[in-house]
Each structure stands twice: as structure tokens, then as C-alpha cells.
């Protein structure tokens, strides 16, 4: 507890110094705002609903893209993991496509879908697909061979083997993959909104900066950071709750 409080000392100190400096120097700037003004802008943005509606757009796009990308990633990860020859045959294709930065396909998505949710979700799905697929595949590869032997001895059918042995064994690592992908989805959604798509938090942030409203800009920036932090916190907690053994083992490594 004490240690956590010490962690807050530096940010609070910096904020106080920033406020003092702003008050003493009396800044009326197009680029900087005092913490108090930012807090006011933050409250105002919430009370008139602008921040909330932008948040809804960003999170909808992120969730939709995540669902598509991670869903496809899990399915192909399972296929590749259970059928190694198929995985070896597509190795070159995967290795060639994987390093393409997700934002690079933004122009293609823009051509195909135009502005809006579809284009944003397509890019998020592309960004989430490869990490989830690779993690799922390696999770299946790492199932202890003994478990598969047990399945054979018990004469389980392919379906039974998938649901009774494979699925429970890979579930913890699947959740880890989803957690990483959720972080990616949020980052990519904000990025796409900043660079092209005129909706959501990224766009509000860009507009606040462009129209010289620094207080609004920093308020939204703070809020985006808070969402990212909260998302990670919730997912780590959930992971600890669902798979305490795996999460602890990984933390110890």
C-alpha cells in the first residue's frame, strides 16, 4: 500500500508544479493549459456528453474489430495447431503478411469501405489477427504430449479430444492472447481515428488540438490513457481470477 502511494508522489508533484507555474506565469496559451482548466474541460466534456459519445464510437469499433480479428485468429490458430502440415505450408505466406504494419492497410480499407466503422474495424481485425493466431497455434503445440496420449488411450473422438483436452489446456494462453489483442485494438482504433477516420476519441483529440483548445485536448488525452489503463487492469484481474496458477507462474518467470 505504502509502495503504491510512493508511486503517485512524482505525478502529483509534477501536476502541482505545473499548476503553480501556470498560475504564476498566467498562461493564456494555444498550446498549454493549467491542470485545473483541464479538469474543468474534462467535467464539461462529460456533462455535455461529447466525451461519452466519442468513447462509445471508439470502443464499439475496437470491440467489433477485436471480435472479428481474434475470432478468425483463434479459428486459424486451432486449424494450424492441430494440422501441422497445413501450418508448414502457409509458413511463407504468414511470414510475408505478418510484418505489414496494420496502419499501412488503412488506405486500402479506406478505398473499400469509405469512412466509418467498417473501415476502422477491418484495420483493427487485421492488427489483432496475427498475434492471436500465432499465440493460439503455439498454445496448442505446447500441450503436453502426455495429455494427447491419454486421449488416445481413452479412445476419444476428434470432437471429444478438442473439447475435453485441447480447449481446457489452451484456455489460459488463449485469454492471454485476447488480453494482448484488446490492447492492440484500442491503440489501433485511436490511431485510425487520428490519422483518417472522422469519428471517436482520436478524432475529437485531433480536432481539439487543431482548433487550439488545449484544455479539451489534454482532457481527452488523459481520458484515453485512463481507458487504456483501466482496460489492462480489468483484464489482468480477470486473468488472475480465472487462471490464478498460470498467471502467477508467468509472473514468476
Amino acid at each position: 500500500m505504502m509502495k503504491a502511494l510512493k508511486g503517485f508522489a512524482l505525478p502529483v508533484l509534477l501536476l502541482v508544479l505545473w499548476q503553480i507555474w501556470a498560475t504564476v506565469a498566467g498562461i493564456h496559451s494555444d498550446t498549454l493549459a493549467a491542470p485545473v482548466d483541464i479538469a474543468v474541460a474534462f467535467v464539461k466534456g462529460f456533462s455535455d456528453g461529447t466525451i461519452l459519445s466519442a468513447t462509445g464510437m471508439t470502443l464499439t469499433a475496437a470491440a467489433g474489430g477485436l471480435l472479428i480479428g481474434a475470432g478468425l485468429g483463434i479459428v486459424s490458430g486451432f486449424v494450424f495447431g492441430l494440422l501441422p502440415p497445413l501450418s508448414r505450408l502457409s509458413r511463407v505466406t504468414v511470414e510475408v503478411l505478418r510484418p505489414v504494419p496494420a496502419v499501412a492497410i488503412l488506405p486500402i480499407a479506406l478505398l473499400v469501405f469509405g469512412f466509418g466503422y467498417a473501415m476502422e474495424m477491418a484495420i483493427i481485425a487485421f492488427a489483432c489477427f496475427f498475434p492471436v493466431m500465432l499465440l493460439t497455434e503455439s498454445a496448442i503445440r505446447q500441450i503436453t504430449p502426455r495429455l494427447m496420449e491419454v486421449a488416445r488411450v481413452m479412445r476419444l473422438t476428434a470432437t471429444q479430444r478438442t473439447f475435453k483436452i485441447v480447449f481446457p489446456a489452451v484456455l489460459p494462453r488463449l485469454f492471454l492472447a485476447l488480453r494482448l489483442a484488446a490492447g492492440i485494438a484500442l491503440i489501433v482504433s485511436v490511431t485510425v481515428e487520428i490519422s483518417a477516420n472522422p469519428q471517436g476519441l482520436g478524432y475529437s483529440l485531433m480536432m481539439a488540438g487543431q482548433s487550439l483548445r488545449p484544455a479539451d485536448m489534454f482532457a481527452i488525452l488523459f481520458w484515453i490513457g485512463l481507458i487504456g489503463w483501466a482496460l489492462n487492469w480489468v483484464l489482468v484481474r480477470t486473468e488472475l481470477k480465472l487462471f490464478p496458477f498460470h498467471a502467477l507462474r508467468r509472473a514468476a518467470e
Binding site: F8, L186, G202, A208, Q210, M217, L221
Partner: peptide, 23 residues
């Protein structure tokens, strides 16, 4: 004293500071 501050900033999507940098 210092490292936790980074943990607060890290979850911020890097591209989100682009508008600030532009200003």
C-alpha cells in the same frame, strides 16, 4: 519513486500524442 509514473503513461496509445506534438 520514478518507475510507477512510467506505468501510468505507458497504456496511452502512442499515436494519441500526435495531436499534442502537432500543436
Amino acid at each position: 519513486w520514478i518507475a510507477p509514473t512510467f506505468e501510468f503513461i505507458r497504456p496511452l496509445p502512442a499515436s494519441a500524442i500526435a495531436p499534442v506534438a502537432i500543436v
